[in-house]
Design a protein around this nucleic acid. Structure first.
Lengths: 117, 117
DNA sequence: CTAAAGCCTCACGCCGACGTGAGAGTCAAG
DNA sequence: CTTGACTCTCACGTCGGCGTGAGGCTTTAG
């Protein structure tokens, strides 16, 4: 499929797709005239990228996870990477959960303090 | 206390403290010569800021939460803000947890695929 | 008293994930 | 065969949270 359709179906901008390619995350075929042609599975892959970006992973990190995403395979150091990133993400989730608790404390404090200030 | 001490005790840079002030997060007293003087409680406040920043909140958002942080009080719209931000954060935590699960899937897939590729 | 350390205010630099034209080629429909 | 919708490649702009000097006062230790 062409870049416009992929963009729409994956919920990102055309610019973003070109950027992902620049970062080594996508390598679409090209027509003789130079236009990009993507396969169906790319839709899901791009959505996964979005999820990773949203989780705070960088292009570099995502690029490093690519062998797993594409093949389901990975060398030993790649698997170490995977676990490292997993742990990093888990730590961030814990931090944010703690922050959530703090916010809740602030809310209950504010609520109990003055009801209709 | 002076800015350098606060920076060290709160674990941020002097530049960061000046930046927080620029964003309306801090309003320290000034000596006649213009130097900033902070109170003890500011140490904890700054740490809270760091926690909020780490959770992805912006300066604007943190500024909006200030009345609660400082007074434990808030007007009705401020409390709405608080809840909105809480919900936003909660949503992000859920997203990231989902991403964590995805990563775990990738890991187990990679592990079960080829043991010592 | 003097030197070093710390503080002050500009104000430009950086990085990452794109946005946003500019200018030009390409492709399907009428 | 033209028109309008897409696509291409530069390449600069943006935003947020600071880093990093520059140039100049102030405070503190010896």
């Amino acid at each position: 499929m062409k870049i416009g359709e992929l963009a729409q179906r994956a919920g990102v901008s055309v610019r973003a797709l070109r950027y992902y390619e620049e970062q080594g995350l996508l390598s679409p075929e090209r027509t003789p005239s130079g236009q990009r042609r993507y396969t169906e599975d790319t839709v899901e892959v791009v959505r996964l990228f979005q999820q990773f970006y949203a989780a705070g992973l960088s292009s570099r990190t995502i690029a490093a996870l690519l062998p797993c995403v594409n093949n389901g395979r990975a060398t030993v150091p790649q698997r170490r990477m995977l676990r490292t990133e997993r742990d990093r993400l888990a730590a961030r989730v814990e931090e944010m959960t703690a922050t959530l608790v703090r916010l809740d404390q602030l809310i209950t404090a504010a609520d109990s303090h003055g009801e209709t200030v």
